[in-house]
Amino acid sequence: MTKREFLDKLKKALANDLSGNVIRDNVDYYNDYITEEVRKGRKESEVIEELGDPWAIAKNIITSEEIKGNTGETYDSYEPERQRSQTYEQGYDEESGHRGVHVFGLDTWWKKLVLLLGIIGVIVLVVAVIGGIISILAPIFIPLLILCLILKLVKDSRR
């Protein structure tokens, strides 16, 4: 893995959980570290191998930032005006044009269809379970109900 690949993976792993400044600081730190170690005479691949998986490093950074309270997840970060002004601060990927925020909305027809089919599936499952219970209990309760009615009629006719 090259230094660029390592830093891109690290940036991508941090993008969904941290603010732009924190991401930039960490990516710059690892960029400077790798550059400095290469200047000392080490191979770039050796330094990157020693650092390990960028996703594991990102997990540690995110955990550390959560403890410090620097995840960028505040009430203000959900306000539309503030979101527009922080486009480049919160992990905007210029190449793909996507932000680092994942939201499941019902903005496309197929998502609405999946939701509708899921609801219908749950209703069908509930009806099937109730029908199954009734089919199991009906052979027992119907004769009991008939017996109770006969006993009541016999009791009423004696009076």
Rank of each mutant, 00 (worst) to 15 (best):
T108K: 01
S45V: 03
G121F: 04
L149D: 11
I130F: 05
D28V: 12
V38K: 03
T35F: 00
D32P: 01
D17M: 10
R82Q: 13
A138M: 03
D17W: 08
R4F: 04
V22A: 07
L116M: 10
Q86S: 07
A128F: 09
G69D: 05
L144D: 09
E46N: 10
L10W: 03
A13S: 12
D32Y: 11
Y92A: 07
N26H: 07
A128K: 09
N70L: 03
L14N: 04
Y75Q: 11
L106M: 15
Y88M: 10
E36A: 14
R158Q: 15
T74M: 05
K112S: 09
E79Y: 08
T71Y: 01
V114M: 07
V103F: 13
D32K: 08
W109I: 04
I61A: 09
P139S: 03
V27Y: 14
L147V: 10
K155T: 00
S135Q: 11
L7F: 11
D107P: 00
F6L: 04
A138G: 02
D53M: 06
I34G: 12
P143T: 01
F141V: 01
E37W: 06
Y88F: 10
F104Q: 14
K12M: 07
P80N: 06
I34R: 09
D8I: 05
K43T: 14
V124I: 15
A138T: 00
E73H: 13
E5D: 15
I133G: 11
Y30V: 05
E5F: 03
A58I: 01
R24F: 03
V122W: 00
L7R: 08
K43S: 14
T35L: 00
R158S: 12
E73T: 11
L137W: 02
E94T: 06
L113Y: 01
D93S: 12
E73N: 12
S19R: 11
E94A: 11
L113S: 02
R4G: 02
L51E: 07
I62T: 13
I136Y: 09
E36L: 07
S64K: 04
V127N: 15
F141I: 04
S157G: 04
E94M: 09
A138C: 03
T74N: 11
E49M: 04
Y30L: 01
E65P: 07
V22K: 03
E89S: 05
V103H: 15
E79D: 12
S157H: 09
K68D: 13
G41T: 02
T2Q: 12
T35V: 07
K152F: 10
E50S: 09
Y88P: 02
K111C: 00
I146V: 15
H102I: 10
Y30H: 06
G100L: 06
A15M: 08
A128V: 09
F104A: 11
I119M: 07
S135W: 03
K59L: 06
L137G: 02
L7S: 13
S135N: 14
I61E: 14
H98M: 12
R4A: 09
K12G: 06
G132L: 06
S135H: 10
S45T: 08
G121H: 06
M1E: 15
R42F: 10
D107I: 01
Y88Q: 11
K11N: 15
G131V: 08
D25N: 14
T108A: 02
R24P: 04
E81H: 11
G131W: 08
S135E: 12
G72Y: 01
L144V: 00
